[in-house]
Write a protein that binds this DNA or RNA. Structure first.
Lengths: 169, 169
DNA sequence: GTTGCCATTTAGAAAGTTTCTACGTAGGCT
DNA sequence: AGCCTACGTAGAAACTTTCTAAATGGCAAC
């Protein structure tokens, strides 16, 4: 993260990023959680990252600024954020991935490069078809949330493959 | 397991179960994989299990019949089955869960008891709405498969909660 | 039926991820 | 400023998955 907010200069893009960080810090306090330096650092590192980082990735980046930070703090903080509704957990492979985007959305995962993209959707409500099948297969089930994962090949990898390049798998 | 559909008689359950095992063994051979005793045991244990067992759960059960079986064999076999299209992997928590049902379907996961139910759906195709959002958020992405996970409270847990009982997480 | 190849199994180690414990620290309210 | 308690740290522990080397055995070919 080279465009982090620790620099003095604030560009237009960083302005939005700062807003998001500020909003998360505000929500953090409203949830009754303490704004410790470590949590502020996690939020600054995490809030505007669209790559769905793993705990390890966040830990590696945070350590550059906080050499003393422990792995448990990363998990504790992410759990705290998730409990407060400021983040969500996504389990796609062996390691969990975390998402600062709490607006309703789905995910597109590339089979080739592993990239995870957010797919915004206005309505997360199940279709009538889905509701019907849900009702008959799991009677009485009350839906709290729905996750959708699209698996396939992303545009970039599709272009590489069509050019005959085969770097991975 | 209540079927809720217009057909499906319990009296034929065993017959259907045997058929399914036979079909999986046939498909296994057609995929060029050897029908070892361990694989046959995994298939017999796994083919008709609707609970989406973890590798640990399958291993525990298999060990009763095959005390010498190693954990790696369970993973190897499940991977082989998945490669041959006879099973699929579902990652919901820390441990992967496996599903012998390869017909297109979704999953309903209970927040309280953790039960996983299959939700059959005729069409797995994304809605026009989803396609539109997918195209703009991930240009060029080609969908191979779509997974949906409904999270909520299952009928059983809902009934318990409404009676004021709180047995577990 | 025998032989031989090679996929597969096994035990164990290793790698990787997540959770837990004990204790020291410090945030933030009064 | 002082207190209470939530929080952070280090490290261990628990758990899941993958890997390695060596032995085994399924099954095709003869």
């Amino acid at each position: 993260m080279k465009s982090g907010s620790s620099h003095g200069h604030v560009s237009h893009a960083d302005a939005h990023a700062s807003e998001r960080v500020a909003a998360m810090l505000r929500d953090l306090k409203e949830a009754g959680l303490k704004a410790t330096p470590q949590r502020v650092a996690v939020i600054e590192t995490f809030a505007n990252d669209p790559t769905h980082p793993t705990a390890q990735e966040l830990f590696d980046r945070l350590r550059e600024r906080f050499p003393a930070m422990s792995f448990a703090t990363v998990y504790n903080t992410l759990d705290a954020l998730a409990s407060a509704g400021l983040a969500s957990t996504l389990r796609l492979g062996t390691a969990a991935r975390f998402d600062p985007n709490t607006t309703p959305h789905h995910h597109a995962v590339c089979d080739r490069c592993g990239a995870v993209n957010d797919i915004p959707t206005e309505s997360m409500a199940p279709t009538d078809d889905a509701k019907r099948h849900l009702a008959s297969a799991a009677p009485g089930f009350v839906v709290r949330a729905e996750e959708r994962i699209f698996r396939g090949i992303c545009g970039e990898c599709g272009a590489l493959v069509s050019r005959g390049e085969r770097k991975l798998s």
